Simulated scan of single mutants.
Amino acid sequence: MAKLDEVLRLVRLYEEKYRHPNLTRFLVSSKYDLFPEKENMGNCWPQCYPYADRPGVYLIMDGNENVLYIGKSSVAIGGRLGSYFCYDGERKCQVRSPYWSTSPKYIVVIAVPFDSAFECAALEEFLLANVRTADNSVFQR
């Protein structure tokens, strides 16, 4: 299974090899913690997902930064992530699906420019062709 740093190297490789150098670079978030140990920490649940209103690719990882799933949203990543995670009765994160190989812990978002949302599919396919994940085949829709 691929680690976060390996996937982020591939994102930069994709930018260098397949995108014109004058294009706006992708924005890569820091790790977003779905299950923070303390309240009121930055970049964690229940705060808004990073780049929630942007098109892009997202990585869902376990607690050891193993990439479990690579997905995309050509419209708004926040809405797509909402199909995987929601609030429980105490405003804590609840995982909607029981089919994860390992419990999700972190999310990293790679936001693409609004004017090139079509790149989401290409970036996702490039990553899936070069990275083995545990759960992409489980969640194929």
Rank of each mutant, 00 (worst) to 15 (best):
N66S: 12
S73V: 06
L81W: 02
Y69H: 09
Y87C: 15
G63S: 14
V67L: 07
Y87M: 09
S73D: 10
E90V: 05
C93V: 04
N66L: 14
R96G: 02
R80Y: 04
R80H: 04
E65P: 02
S97F: 15
S83Q: 11
E65S: 13
P98M: 11
G63W: 08
C93Y: 00
C93L: 07
G79R: 03
Y69N: 00
W100G: 03
G71A: 11
G63F: 12
Y99P: 03
M61S: 10
Q94M: 13
C86T: 14
Y99K: 10
V75R: 15
V95T: 08
I70Y: 01
E90A: 08
D88T: 00
I60A: 02
Y84H: 09
V67Y: 03
G79Q: 02
E90C: 12
G89P: 10
V75I: 14
R91T: 10
N66A: 12
N66H: 13
R80K: 13
P98T: 00
I70A: 02
G89Q: 15
Y84C: 05
C86Q: 11
L68H: 01
S74I: 06
Y99F: 15
R96V: 14
R96I: 08
Y69L: 12
L59E: 09
G63H: 12
S83H: 10
A76K: 05
G71C: 03
G78C: 13
K92I: 08
F85Q: 11
G63Q: 13
E65L: 15
I60K: 07
P98G: 06
W100L: 03
G79K: 04
R80S: 00
G78W: 05
G82K: 14
L81V: 05
C86S: 15
N66V: 13
S73G: 10
Y99H: 13
N64E: 15
Q94A: 09
Y69I: 01
G78A: 07
I70L: 11
K92V: 00
R80D: 03
K72E: 15
C93I: 07
L81F: 00
L81M: 13
Y87W: 14
Q94F: 08
L68Y: 05
R96M: 12
S73E: 09
W100V: 01
R96H: 07
S97G: 10
Q94T: 02
Y87L: 08
S74V: 05
I60E: 03
K72M: 11
Y69A: 04
A76N: 10
V95F: 04
L81K: 01
I77G: 08
E90S: 08
E65I: 08
L59P: 04
S74H: 06
L81Q: 04
R96E: 06
D62W: 08
G71R: 03
N64H: 13
R96Y: 08
I77E: 03
A76E: 15
Q94I: 00
I77Q: 06
G78P: 01
N64F: 13
V95R: 07
